[in-house]
Design a protein around this nucleic acid. Sequence first.
DNA 1: ATATTGACAGACCAACCGGTCTGTTTATAT
DNA 2: ATATAAACAGACCGGTTGGTCTGTCAATAT
Lengths: 201, 201
Amino acid sequence: MVVLRNPDETRRRILEAALEEIHLRGFQGMRVEHILTRTKLTKGALYHHFANKMAIGYAIVDEILGQDVMNRWVMPLKDSDDPVKTIIDICEQERAGNTASEIEKGCPINNLSQEMSPIDEGFRERLEAVYQEWTGAIADALRRGQEKGTIRKEVSPEKVAKFLLASLQGIIGVAKCCRHDNMLDDMADCLKDYLMQLRVS
Amino acid sequence: MVVLRNPDETRRRILEAALEEIHLRGFQGMRVEHILTRTKLTKGALYHHFANKMAIGYAIVDEILGQDVMNRWVMPLKDSDDPVKTIIDICEQERAGNTASEIEKGCPINNLSQEMSPIDEGFRERLEAVYQEWTGAIADALRRGQEKGTIRKEVSPEKVAKFLLASLQGIIGVAKCCRHDNMLDDMADCLKDYLMQLRVS
DNA sequence: ATATTGACAGACCAACCGGTCTGTTTATAT
DNA sequence: ATATAAACAGACCGGTTGGTCTGTCAATAT
C-alpha cells in the first residue's frame, strides 16, 4: 500500500506534477485542479503545503530548476579546464536524452522566463538568479581555460558566457516551433563551430 | 467626432489592442474584456469580427507579425549583397527604437512560439511559416553574398541563417529576464563578432 | 491513555471569462 | 422611400478556477 502521511514526499510530488503541467502549458495555463488529478491529492493537501498557486511556481524555480542547472552545468564546469569540450558534452548528452515531445516543450527555465518575467517580479528575480549562476559558471570555466591555455586570450569570458547561454536558449526555443527535418541539428552545428573557434587553434 | 462604422479600421484596432495585451501577458493571459476596454468596443462588435479568441491570435500572427518580419527583414535583405552589414543595421535600428519596457516584453513572435507551439498546432504552423520566410531571406542573402564575394565560401547559408535567428531570439529572450546592466549589449557584441567573421577577411 | 498538532479530505464559493443572443442602428442597393 | 444586410450594443449565461473553511485522521509527546 501507499505510504501514508509523508509530507516531504507529498510536497515533492506536488512540485513535480506542477512542473510537468507548467512545462507544457505554461504557468498561467497550468491548473491547480490538474495537479490534484495527477497527484491524486485534494485541495486541502495542496493548500496545506503551498499558500497559493504563485508559491508553487516560485518553489519550482528555486528548488527544482535551480538545482537542475547546478547539477547539469555548474558542477561539471567546475571540474573542467576545457570548457568547450565540457559544454559540447553537456549539450550532446542533453540532446541524446530528449525525446521529440521533450523538444517540443523546450526549456522550462526559458519558458517561464518568457512568460512570467514581464508580469511578475518574483518570478523574474528568481529566474535571473538561475541565469546568473549559469553564466557565472561558464564564464569562470572560460577564464580558467584561458589560464590553462585552452581558450583564446581575446575572448571575453563574461560576454561569451552570456552569448552562449542566449544562443543555446534561442536554439531550443526555435526548435520548439520549427519541427522541420534537421532544424535542431543545423543550429547545433553552428553553435559547435562557434565553440570550437573559442579554442586556441 | 470619431468616424462611425468603419469595419476595416475596427478590425485593425482590435488586432492592435490584442497584440499589445498578448505582448505583455501572453495569449492565454490576454483577456477579451481588456481588448474591449482598450478599444472602447463591445462584445457584439468584437465577436462580429472574430469567431473566437483563437481567431484573434491567428490573425495577429498572419497579418501583423508576418508583415513585420516581411518589412523589417525580408525586404531589406532582398536588396542587399552585404547581408552582414544589413543584419547589423537592422539590429541596431531595432535596438535604438526599443525602450526599456519594450525590451522587457521581448519579441512577440518568440513569445507566442514559446507559449503556444506545444499546445496549439494552428499557432505552431503559422509561426513556423513566419520563421521560414525569415530564415529563408537570411539564407538567400548569405548565398548572394557568397556569389558577390562578401561572404566566406565555407559557411552554410541555411545552417547559419537558422543559427542567426535562434541567437537573436535567444539574446532578446534572455534580456527580458536579466535586466542587469549591459546584458543586452554584451550579447549583441558577440553576435556582431560572429557576424563579422562570416565575411571574407 | 490522552492531548496536541501537523497532514490531509472535500464540500463550497465568489469572481472571472469566453461566448451567445436578441435587439438596434447605420450604410447601401434598388 | 424602402428593403436588406452589415456593424455594433450590451445583457446574460454557464462552466471554470483559485482559494476557503470546517472537519477528520494520524503521529508524537507527555
